[in-house]
Amino acid sequence: MSTVAKLQRTILVTGGNKGIGFEVIKKLIKQPSSINNDLILLGSRDLKRGEDALSQLGSPTNVHLLQLDTLSKESISFATNEIKQKYGGQLDVLINNAGIAPTDDSIEEARKTLATNYYGVKLLNDNLIPFLRDHGRVINVASGIGPIVLGYVSKDLQDKYTSTTLTSEQLDCLVEDFVSALESNNLEKSGYTTEFPYLAYGVSKMALIALTRIEAQQCCDTRKIFVYSVCPGYCATDINKHGPGARSAELGADSILHVVNTSDHELKNGAFYRDGAELEPICMDEAKIQGFIKLMKDLSASK
């Protein structure tokens, strides 16, 4: 019998070499159910950094390195084939943790951010959801900025992003319309706010939360697969240069692990969670919105 066949779950964590993803893996290997039981694939864009992360973890035998860059279609294809060849094409949990934030408000950075945080996750899910066994789950790591940005766009856009009949193709069009509006300097005319620095990051997470609902419905219609989005909270990571006021990456990992380990009967398929609590798709709390705008402006000024 193969090693994989003896394992209880096969779990892939993208962006697992540092930050929140690393903390997720560190906590997984300490769970009683995971010790010498779960097979954990540590996804890392850079092999050397992935190897360093394995060393920091103590090189556990049930954690394997998988080179994976969600910005690269070729890398996603290669990783898909590796999972198929080495691990029998079977997964139980896919944690889409890898993501980037733009370094400025340029069109190039916006496209790169959306390509990684939205299109890359979508492509990876398209490739790997067929590998999930019954009662498998996908966790798309989003952000509280998604509902905040959605609370600041036009009512028409709010209705479109939250529509229960929204399709994957329609969502792609919404994202492309945003990029076009950014390129033509017509954000306000298109229903978007210009108050947020790094707006593309917020839109990428807003779209990811909407994608989660679409994928959950698709999987529910065909198989016993569950898809959730999670906000890890504003955590001290490389993305925000470990900014002031951020909570620890360990707490962010706990928020993700709640939807990894909680029974599917206790969770709502397609929902958005933080620290075990379901969040609304649109944030209308003006204090939170203004606080976030200030935070983003402070981060922008520090770069």
Rank of each mutant, 00 (worst) to 15 (best):
I11M: 01
A287K: 12
L114D: 11
L182D: 10
I25K: 00
L174C: 11
M1R: 02
G245W: 12
I289A: 01
G19Q: 11
I148A: 05
K160I: 02
T237W: 11
L57H: 02
E82H: 11
P281E: 07
K73C: 07
L208M: 10
D221I: 09
R111P: 10
V138R: 02
L182E: 11
F272P: 07
G19R: 12
L54V: 02
D134M: 02
Y118I: 05
S2D: 13
F178W: 02
L124W: 05
T3N: 01
D264K: 08
S229P: 11
A53N: 09
I209Y: 03
A115Q: 15
L182R: 13
G120A: 06
G144S: 09
S204R: 07
P232T: 03
S34H: 03
V153Q: 01
Y228L: 03
G233P: 12
A101Y: 11
D177P: 09
A181L: 12
L267Y: 00
F292R: 05
N186P: 01
Q85A: 12
D264A: 02
C219E: 14
L299G: 11
T116C: 15
A271E: 12
Y161Q: 07
T237N: 09
S59A: 05
K288I: 12
P232G: 06
L68D: 01
R137G: 04
K155C: 04
T164D: 14
D221Y: 03
E266M: 11
L91E: 04
D69W: 04
Y118S: 10
E250I: 00
T10Y: 06
T3R: 00
